[in-house]
Computed example of a mutant assay.
Amino acid sequence: MSAGDRGVQAFIGIGANLGDPEAQVRESFARLAKGLPKTRLTGRSRMFRNPPMGPQDQPDYVNAVARLYTRLEPLELLVELQGIECACGRERDGTRWGPRRLDLDLLLFGDQSLDLPGLQVPHAGIADRDFVILPLLELAPGLQIPGMGPLELLAQRFEGANLIPVAEPEASVTAAEGHG
């Protein structure tokens, strides 16, 4: 099953902890809204500050989740996301869980489960990351995660999580974000 002409809903995890992380996340929302072909931004979570998942000798992260409607195929969307990362100063040096100016992860692509070279959907760590599950819950509380079940049940593991909201979501997605 592909995105084809009808399109699918996709969710993107956003994270940054170098430079001005809040500005980086805001910039990524703007780029997702205006810079992707055959795609429109249809929702965004609040931004949250949280400790790094990997080595602790790095700054806290700011994370959020974006909801897209796209007619791109999964690997096409991944290439576009990596282009945004690069344009925002991301350098891929193979470091896992290290500091980053911007990280965009394709979390979900419709109801598909994919295991392709360079792309696993649902994202491999989705169920273990409060900074993904809780913002995702804001956008789509009734969502079913392929192979994992209801998002609401996954979120129960993270009650009392240490995420610190740093910004409220936008009241609505602006008209400029409707292009794609």
Rank of each mutant, 00 (worst) to 15 (best):
P122D: 10
A23I: 04
P117G: 02
A33Y: 02
Q24H: 13
D130G: 08
S2G: 15
L151Q: 12
P122V: 03
D103V: 02
L119M: 04
C88L: 15
E80F: 01
G98L: 09
L119H: 00
E27M: 03
G110W: 02
D93W: 05
R26E: 15
Q120W: 00
G118E: 07
Q9H: 09
L102P: 01
Y69V: 06
I164L: 15
V62Q: 06
P52H: 07
N63I: 01
G43H: 03
E138M: 11
R40Q: 07
M47A: 11
G142V: 11
A66K: 06
E177L: 04
L137H: 09
V25S: 08
A23N: 06
R26N: 09
L163N: 11
E177Y: 14
E76L: 08
L151P: 12
L137G: 09
R26W: 12
V121P: 01
L116Y: 05
D111P: 00
R49S: 09
F131D: 07
E170L: 15
P21T: 05
D115T: 07
R96L: 13
L136Q: 06
G178N: 14
L108M: 07
G125P: 01
A124I: 06
A87E: 15
R92A: 10
A87Y: 10
A127D: 05
I133Y: 07
T39L: 00
L108F: 06
P37E: 08
H179Q: 14
T95G: 05
I145N: 07
L104H: 03
Q120M: 08
E91N: 10
N162G: 15
F109Q: 00
V132L: 12
I12D: 01
T70I: 09
Q56T: 10
P117M: 05
D103R: 04
Q56N: 01
E91M: 11
F131I: 06
L119C: 03
L107S: 03
I126T: 02
R26M: 09
S2N: 14
R101I: 04
A64G: 07
C86Y: 09
L136K: 04
L153S: 14
L81V: 09
Q9R: 14
A127H: 09
R26S: 11
H123R: 08
E170K: 09
F48A: 02
R92E: 11
P135E: 13
L163P: 03
K38T: 00
I133K: 05
L153A: 15
I126F: 05
G180D: 01
H123L: 06
V8Y: 00
P74T: 04
R90E: 13
Q144C: 12
L104Q: 02
Q9P: 00
L108H: 04
R100C: 11
V8A: 06
C86I: 12
H179C: 12
E159A: 15
G118Y: 03
P141E: 13
M1D: 09
D60E: 10
M1H: 13
Y69W: 13
M47I: 04
P21V: 03
T95N: 05
P74R: 08
Q56C: 00
R101G: 00
T39W: 00
M148E: 15
V173A: 00
Q24P: 00
R31E: 14
T174S: 15
D105S: 02
G35P: 04
G118N: 04
V121A: 05
D20G: 05
V173C: 11
L134F: 11
I164S: 12
K34E: 11
L18P: 05
T39E: 01
L137E: 12
L143F: 09
P146S: 10
R26F: 08
P135A: 13
